[in-house]
Design a protein around this nucleic acid. Structure first.
Lengths: 345, 345
DNA sequence: TTGAAAGCGGTACCAT
DNA sequence: ATGGTACCGCTTTCAA
């Protein structure tokens, strides 16, 4: 009996049959250098006693854990849930398991997770850095120790590893372009912290779209919220529409978009007729809310799947081209909150 | 050099210092039977060469993985996300890591996950069975092999293991009681598949509340949807309000509740004035939707945390009382969709 | 075709 | 205080 209570080892089978450990091992791995009868005997005994090879012994021997770690800022977040789902799906289809490392947007937790992964527990790591993270040495260490690493969404540009990202810049551009096409002239921007690169890229896309058609940039109508929580979104939008005469809003997240719409409604204005709104991320809520929310897609499962794929490639071939950048496209999903041309009145 | 590229082993340090492996091991674990200078020398070398004990060797030796598996039907689901967050949090605080096993409500995947966990990869498992699962032998096997197991939410009653559940029956009762208190006389029920025990319990709570105050049970106003998808919810509700004259709905999930409200609005009726609605689960959307949704709380993080706690207890003390049932209470959260007495007109 | 033994990276018992 | 060695469960080389 092995040490998992009730678990049988190769040694047990060897003893029981009087055959050597070596032969048992060979028989169980269908090595041809074993006589057919011997093999069948051993395999039947193994089946009978419910033999299962020990994961622990195997991973010590083979230096493989068949496990990857996934470091994410948030768990209860539609985008990250989907990323994890996509990554897990790809991993499972390739015999890998996934260890979950939510940092809860805390730098300390993120570092702690990385530390505890760099002891041979996983074969590689997928990570999205937290909003709070300014120092990247825990990731540098990972690379130094030759643990395969792939970033997604919020990445460390300085590190020479594969990165899977949305084309946030172009997505922001498209969103605002759409508002312009709907006839909006004074389009505001409201987004999360500017230092988070995805937000900044979306913002740059906004600027480009406006500049391109010669709309003036009014910095009074550009708001970088300290977080993208609903509460902030509502109050900032309130201030915004109080002070400025706008007819369109591009919100860098759906949460902020819905918060904005609530504020607009509260002021007695109508969406999209008075102010059209486009969000970002395609959250479920946007399909159900009234009006339904125009938004940019952010295919989390696809991003997660591609990240897992890149990681597993890297594990199997450590010398491949590291600095690949895998870009996932975002699509405009037109719904009620922005469709002014087709409105009924 | 160990076999993680760049990783140093105890043996390397022994060689480098000319000290025995044993002493190095002792020094690194702060064993007092090592001379202070020796210890400090070894520790400084270890630090210098970035020594990290091998997780793989350790887990083979100690028969501990410090990892637990969590089997859930869905990942991108607010409730399960929260459960996972709660479980992971507790696990992390107790030096455990979590392996994710989403079954995606597929019996096959659930079985596959369990198989791959029963090889010594984890110290224990937390599980919620999928809607599809009718055969429980993969869980029976888990118990037979003495792998600690804890169920939550959708549990296998027949198995003698700890279970963490919401008091669904009482919660359903409270929800309907609230509608009655609001003056509703003809209250409909709409829920997910009846064979899923949590749905059935909520339904029983509904029946009890009605029976208790002498309201007649009208089976025309009791709908068990094949799934709890929005689409089903909307069409079933449409039929319901078409055929029956109701003034209240208890929906066994928030998804169905919102679907119901959409159908009601589409018919030109008002919530809560014409029909009051109470949902179940306290999803984020219910706080933002208009009207905001009255609902029963379903504290996922708490449930996950308690499950992890029970599991880790079981791991550390396998002889403890197995058949514990840990019941988490649900609270009524009154919002606009049901507040008829305080409505402004 | 089969078996003995070394080794993966640690720990811990038994000597010295 | 320090070192030799067996062992955890399995694979693999070498020998027979």
């Amino acid at each position: 009996m092995g040490t998992r209570k009730g678990s049988v080892t190769i040694k047990d089978i060897a003893k029981k049959t009087g055959i050597s450990i070596t032969t048992v091992s060979r028989a169980l791995s269908n090595n041809p250098h074993v006589r057919k009868e011997t093999r069948e005997l051993i395999q039947s005994i193994a089946r009978k006693y419910n033999y299962v090879p020990s994961y622990r012994a195997l991973s010590l021997k083979t230096n493989r854990t068949n496990t990857i770690g996934i470091v994410v800022p948030q768990l209860t977040h539609e985008f990250f849930s989907k990323v994890i789902r996509g990554a897990e799906r790809y991993a499972q289809d390739n015999q890998y398991k996934v260890i979950l490392c939510p940092s809860n947007d805390s730098y300390e937790r993120e570092v702690a997770h990385m530390e505890r992964l760099l002891n041979g527990r996983v074969d590689g790591i997928i990570a999205c850095i937290s909003n709070e993270t300014r120092d990247y040495s825990h990731f540098t260490r990972c690379v130094e120790q030759d643990v395969p690493l792939v970033f997604f969404d919020c990445v460390v540009e300085a590190l020479d590893v594969p990165k899977v990202v949305l084309d946030d810049f172009n997505a922001g551009y498209q969103a605002v372009k759409h508002l312009i096409d709907q006839g909006c002239k004074r389009i505001a921007y409201i987004g999360g912290p500017e230092h988070v690169s995805v937000n900044y890229q979306r913002y740059l896309g906004y600027k480009k779209a406006l500049t391109e058609v010669g709309h003036p940039l009014n910095y009074q109508t550009i708001v970088h919220c300290p977080t993208d929580h609903r509460d902030h979104g509502e109050s900032y939008t309130q201030n915004l529409i109080q002070a400025e005469n706008i007819d369109g809003i591009f919100a860098a997240t759906d949460v902020l978009a819905i918060a904005a719409i609530r504020a607009i409604k509260a002021k007695g204005l109508k969406v999209p007729d008075d102010i059209a709104v486009v969000g970002f991320s395609n959250w479920t809520i946007g399909k159900v809310y009234e009006p339904t929310l125009t938004t940019m897609s952010q295919p989390g499962a696809k991003i997660g799947g591609k990240a897992a794929q890149a990681l597993i490639q890297l594990i199997n071939d450590p010398d491949e081209n590291h600095s690949r950048r895998i870009i996932v496209e975002s699509d405009l999903l037109v719904r009620q909150s922005s469709t002014r041309l087709t409105r009924s009145r």
